[in-house]
Design a protein around this nucleic acid. Structure first.
Lengths: 244, 244
DNA sequence: GCTCTGTAGTGGTATATACCACTCACTTTG
DNA sequence: CAAAGTGAGTGGTATATACCACTACAGAGC
């Protein structure tokens, strides 16, 4: 966070004040002009920090009045971010995996874009087949920004060791937020062979971008799950608006 | 739109070009500098128009390369209980639907079990084909406990009227919580014909059990989405339960 | 008391300018 | 021929300035 853009550092400071309770819900924040003067930055920079917090749903603006801490942070209920192993064992099943490949290499285009890496960026690339009760159910490729976790792949045996636990303990990277997308797909020959199913069988293609405690993305995951085995469950809450 | 802010008018023009197909998916848009010069506005104004389109998910930027039209996949956010129409229009697309059938009948076994109904329980059954930009993308069957909303189906034209709005206004039923499951599947002959795709094409099968403000389930929805158009997005955080 | 009306302060919009890191195609160099 | 370097173009950030519409509030006028 030291060399992050100025507006993000300002936003982070304000976010910390909100989280710590210094700034309370519905309370008025310094105006854009007051902020810029107090911090010695231009008004546009202060404004950009506030826009960032609006995007996070932490504050809201009222023209002619000011900027206020948003009141309904509690309504931002998100789904859990837990690892494959934790989720499976919680259901009383046996989780295991085998490592298909484990290398450090240049990020491909999709990965670099997702992780906001330059085209020359290096990633640790870990491809595993996931098993539940001895049955192969998913092929998963995890890519982690190499510079964030030097020599990660030599640190532990990730057939048995939790990737997230290692990241947290050894590198201080705490998985905090993630954006996950799911789409329907069909098994190709490679997937069919790996997951012991037939080409053309339904699969769930899943991608996940994981962020650390500072909001910086560090991991990009692509998984393919057997469609006849996995069901994704989500709890929804009413977001104040509706239509059907 | 005549006296709207300049950047919104520019954004609307670009949006129209994307919608009409003049600008195609993955195609490169004028750079910020080129846009500003062509339109005779400052670069920051052109940039603000583009940021607005990014917010709608219509374009994406790649530093050092340019700004590109997003692939035309439709993103449905999974974790907010917002309606199909709202989610689509938020992305600057045209949502519509046609009614396949609209009857009140005995609940089938799966529905009765989901809604905790006796075997003789009656449900209002509304089957619709959902369209986005004139293209069929989903087949959806909504079943609502008949005794909770007498004569619901005669109350309004649900091609144009929001189902949830009617439930709230006329019957005091407020959709509050829902449990949603998602699985990969294949289009059968009927689905393929309805959604203008091929049998065996990937689809997303979705079911939802919706509860009112008292926690009582009142609605059971079964939907099938075209897998090549729809992507489901979920935001995850550390600290709850759920999934897989 | 009441309404009206400035006026100061707020966020919203718009311009102009500048520098940075990055990408990519091209040229130079060995 | 391959590797290294150059430069134009791109989005990202930051500053400074200006005017607008809107809100709240104090004070004038009735």
């Amino acid at each position: 966070m030291d060399n992050a853009p100025l507006y993000l550092r300002i936003a982070a400071d304000l976010e910390a004040e909100i989280a710590s309770g210094v700034l309370k819900a519905e309370e008025k924040i310094d105006s854009e002009r007051a902020l810029s003067e107090r911090l010695g930055v231009s008004r546009m920079t202060a404004r950009q920090a506030l826009r960032h917090l609006i995007g996070k749903g932490l504050v809201e603006t009222r023209t002619g009045q000011g900027t206020f801490v948003s009141s309904r942070q509690i309504e931002q209920r998100l789904e859990t971010l837990s690892g494959f192993t934790e989720e499976i064992t919680r259901q009383g099943r046996q989780a295991s995996s085998i490592i298909v490949s484990s290398i450090t290499r240049r990020a491909d285009e999709q990965t670099a874009r997702a992780l906001s890496l330059p085209a020359t960026g290096m990633v640790h690339c870990l491809t595993r087949v996931r098993f539940v009760d001895g049955m192969p159910v998913a092929l998963e490729t995890t890519e982690i920004i190499a510079s964030r976790a030097p020599h990660l792949l030599e640190r532990a045996d990730f057939r048995t060791t939790s990737l997230y636990a290692t990241l947290t303990d050894e590198y201080g990277i705490v998985p905090t937020l993630a954006e996950q997308t799911l789409m329907a797909g069909l098994a190709d020959a490679n997937i069919a062979r790996t997951l012991h199913t037939d080409p053309g069988a339904p699969v769930l293609d899943l991608t996940r971008l994981t962020r650390d405690q500072d909001g910086s993305p560090f991991e990009f995951v692509r998984s393919t799950y057997r469609g006849d085995f996995f069901v994704m469950k989500v709890d929804l809450s009413l977001g104040a608006r509706t239509q059907a």
